[in-house]
Design a protein around this nucleic acid. Structure first.
Lengths: 205, 205, 205, 205
DNA sequence: TATGAATGAGGCTTCATTCAT
DNA sequence: AATGAATGAAGCCTCATTCAT
């Protein structure tokens, strides 16, 4: 859009980043357009140059989160090729909570929890993000199954749900408890369980 | 006004109930005091006769939820005396989501997700609610352990965390997905796992 | 009103005293009826049992101040029989400001400064208070004149105005400056001047 | 909207002027933001575009008054070079009261009288205004002293205080009495006194 | 006398959004 | 692409006052 080779982060992106962080911190409704403008260092009314409305911005924030996910620019475990990787996938969340003092939860869930029946489009956006972030898990379980490393009857979709559910529950609980210990214990149980689903012939980890 | 046998619920309670429902539906910040007043059929400014501020109301709502919990007035499974009861404990949540079209999540988590660092007191209120609602689970696992029905090394606290985490994760995910299927599958896995922790000598219930 | 011989200070009086103090401190408009009720330890709506309206209370407060003045229950110099007494009359105000940290001004002027054209009655109330509190001064100068102790042409009314003006100016200025030094210096000049109006034959003080 | 030679006064200034006048008339607490908006012909919520809060506006009003004073845009006597000028300095206040029907007092004192301990900053603002408006007086007395026109021991600061005190006292009293006669008489005495402080060699003006 | 719930207007402030430049 | 003034609805809260008991 700009002519330079290494364009400065453009205004729109800056606004999205600022909004994302504020939404994550305090929710959508508690975040005013002005606050976003101030944090992104943008003059007033640039906002409506780039976004139709605040809701449109929420949409853009979720969409941008999806792009980051696809581009693997978020500090997550994208490639799960082993049971150790799976543990690490969980570990990233647990460690993040611990390091950040459990002050936040999942950014998408934060937005989702403020959703009413009127925000169907944003709900779908967020649901798509969930699909995206479930992918590495799903791929792992599918692969394991294909390799014959899973017990008969194991359903990769269900296992993915199981992992994702633990992760989401752990994030909100650690925020409520201001302590990641319960999250960690739950993850340990989850891992323990999942490992019982490996075919016996397999070697640990 | 009327002298009926079931005297009208007092104003304060009506406001709390209206607020609870609106908070649950759309979050705290999206709910205006006027909206609460309208829904509770209360004249303007009664609000500040009963509550110091909107925040004070949030506190009262959470507190009242705790009282309901203690008085077992919420449609939950309070007594868990068997593995079947445990399944039912989960089932209540899953069924509720299904019947309500997954339009909401956990009312406390909804409030919690809008919390910022400034709302420490309310966070503590909510945390206490969590402790309360974990009790039946904890009691069950402790009892099972005392009876020698759990495998060695099983930690009732951790098992409680595990159940609670699944429940919380399931609620938000089903809201995002507008579908309780994933929640149900996760619960099934959780149950399956938990049952593996019973002592073999035990008879299936 | 009550049957006991030493009746407890009655509710109405307690409200007036609380109101007076709050008005003096922060003005009439900044003082709410509730605040007065709280400070006087009165249950709500006792207020409208005793006063027609807030304005009526203001009237009562001013009136009560007049009564106190007449009954010589205020810490003022009521009898001015000598030039030393006159100095003391000023001194009472200066010392009061100094001891109180100059946090307030004249209670009646405080009310007067919030007066608009609509409050004619209260203005008249306050004006009457001024007349009352000017009396000792006026009496002194009239007496001095009658005794032939004042220079020819001295007008007791004007001298009284002069003293009263200095007092009022000193009170507001010391409040603004949070320092009574300027007040004191002005009083010294005033005294010096007034003494020049004595007949030469007179002996100092 | 129009492109007149005298461009419309900007919104902020209009608000300050309207506020100043209303504050002067009825005090700060009796003046609502809406009233200021209406009087200044400003659409709602422009207010908070220009001022952080109502208190911030009070600060701005006082500050603006200081600027007017410095720029000599107020109908006051700024240059006092003679005893006649000094009389005129007083005369401006007395005449203003007379012409305006004594309906108001000193605008700064009006604000000051509503001050509580919490408004320290505004008190300091107002105190600074006092310093500013005392300057012509002080300069006059200092000059007179330097010229040897004042009796020995005369203190220019104290004389300035004396004049200022008379002025302030006269303003509030004339408002209370709805009559400037007492103010005028007090000023006459003050002038008479001050002239006694001139060195005898001086010629009467 | 006394209590405190109820009323509704209005106060201060913030918001999302639009307009003129 | 950018600026910031302008808009008006709405949010939270306080007020003086009245009513039922």
């Amino acid at each position: 859009m700009t002519k330079s080779a290494t364009p400065k982060i453009d205004t729109r992106t800056r606004m999205i980043q600022a909004a994302f962080d504020l939404f994550h911190q305090q929710g959508v409704n508690a975040t005013s357009v002005d606050e976003i403008l101030a944090k992104s260092g943008t003059g007033k009314s640039q906002f409506y140059h780039y976004f139709k409305s605040k809701e449109d911005l929420v949409h853009a924030v979720v969409e941008s989160f999806g792009e980051m996910l696809k581009a693997q620019k978020l500090p997550l475990k994208y490639e799960i090729d082993s049971w150790a990787d799976l543990e690490e996938w969980f570990g990233v969340f647990v460690n993040h909570q611990r390091r950040s003092g459990c002050s936040r939860g999942c950014p998408m869930a934060t937005i989702a929890y403020e959703l009413t029946g009127d925000d169907e489009l944003i709900r779908q956006d967020i649901n798509m993000i969930c699909e995206l972030s479930r992918k590495p898990l799903l791929k792992f379980f599918v692969t394991e199954q294909a390799r014959g490393h899973l017990v008969d009857g194991a359903d990769p979709e269900a296992l993915t749900d199981f992992c994702y559910t633990i992760m989401q529950g752990g994030l909100i609980l650690s925020k409520i408890q201001k302590d990641a210990a319960g999250f960690e214990r739950s993850v340990e149980h989850a891992i323990t369980y999942l490992k019982t689903l490996r075919k016996v012939s397999e070697i640990d980890r």
